[in-house]
Design a protein around this nucleic acid. Structure first.
Lengths: 211, 211
DNA sequence: ACATTTTTGTTAATATTATGTCAAAAAGAA
DNA sequence: TTCTTTTTGACATAATATTAACAAAAATGT
């Protein structure tokens, strides 16, 4: 069953294809050629065809790609054709922002619980769910068979909390803490290092001003 | 003055070097070799040396790199050796999360103002600053000579708001809206597409489960 | 029905990125 | 001081990724 392994660069682009296809569907467009899509996405047509052909021949000569079909195929590839239960650890502004993000729900990511260690906010509602004590982490994960967690706490506590998460059965971690987590091979980490993103912006603004 | 152009891959890694150097400084370590750093960062020593040599010879044979010195040099390269005034457009949870992020201030990013179109929250405080009406965008940017803006509003309004920002003098945009912005060449966009990040996590969790 | 056009999937060519190698420089040890 | 070890910066090599080219398939037009 071992899929030929797909390069990081392709994986990076996949969700962007998905987003464009979604937009095209919303516009009621039915089919698109790689060359037309390449103009919109500012890629080469060749790259689009090669990227998609990593997963199968979704197009047809003389016709192009059926948007609805390709959209659904990419959803399958991205594993978003079914629901994912997730929890959020850390109910600060960022944790709450994620919890309230309706777009995630639209794509099948369901926030089942949100946790914080601060007793003064435990019990508060975030949207429709209640902030729970960290003591409940393990039981909630196990009872609901949750596999995905967003980590929105400072880097200090993050390392130990992530261990707890993994012990409780989490296999995918969306990490917003400013630290690279060291985890077993079968655990997946997706880092969102916002301050690094901001530094890249700063770098490129510096470049832009020099020219 | 034209710097030899630096590949995106290098720029991507630069802030991560900076973060590791910061951590090393906090640990009171004075010097490090590319090979020791490569172990910590899980890169090859060769890549580290080549990355850094894009910007200058910061190391010394038989000694390695002086951490404080390299840290300061990278700060200069990243253009974070001086303060950056910024504004935030959109005072939802995400905008508020960014406004409250003390780490940004530590690196010299100063949030000067936050804007929202919702009259019911205009005037509310976010940390030490007050949410202002969108009408004030242009005057605040011009009066304070602000060059950087974080865009934390839905994709629909984002496109027009970004035009306004650019007209008012913004040259760097930290974009959290789910849309690729079409801007003049001299304007810099750094996208943070959270839902794409989440889809990549989902993809890789799917892969991990197959093995 | 036939010719023309479009457009894919695939293979080949090019370009970019990462890794390995090594002489030369400096540090540290004897 | 002199010898040995460490370690860089530069360059050569290998691996990846992107772009180009094109035959074959299907659609469209006449």
């Amino acid at each position: 069953m071992a899929k030929k392994d797909i390069s990081q660069a392709v994986i990076q682009r996949l969700p962007r294809y998905y987003r464009y296809l979604e937009d095209l569907m919303d516009q009621g467009i039915e089919r698109i050629s790689s060359s037309e899509l390449s103009k919109r996405m500012k890629l080469t047509a060749s790259q689009i065809r090669q990227d998609l052909n990593n997963f199968g021949g979704f197009g047809q000569q003389g016709y192009g790609y059926n948007i609805k079909n390709l959209h659904d195929e990419i959803a399958k590839i991205l594993n978003i054709d079914n629901e994912h239960k997730m929890i959020i650890v850390g109910a600060g502004h960022l944790g709450q922002a994620l919890a309230n993000y309706t777009n995630f729900r639209k794509r099948g990511f369901i926030v089942k619980a949100i946790f914080d260690k601060d007793p003064s906010i435990i019990g508060n509602m975030v949207g429709e769910i209640q902030i729970q004590s960290m003591d409940k982490l393990e039981s909630v994960i196990k009872d609901n068979d949750i596999k995905m967690a967003a980590v929105c706490i400072p880097k200090g506590p993050a390392i130990k909390v992530v261990e707890q998460l993994i012990d409780a059965g989490i296999i995918g971690i969306w990490n917003f803490a400013h630290v690279d987590l060291d985890v077993p091979e079968n655990i997946v980490i997706e880092n969102v290092h916002l301050s690094e993103s901001l530094m890249r912006l700063s770098y490129r603004m510096g470049e832009a001003l020099e020219d």
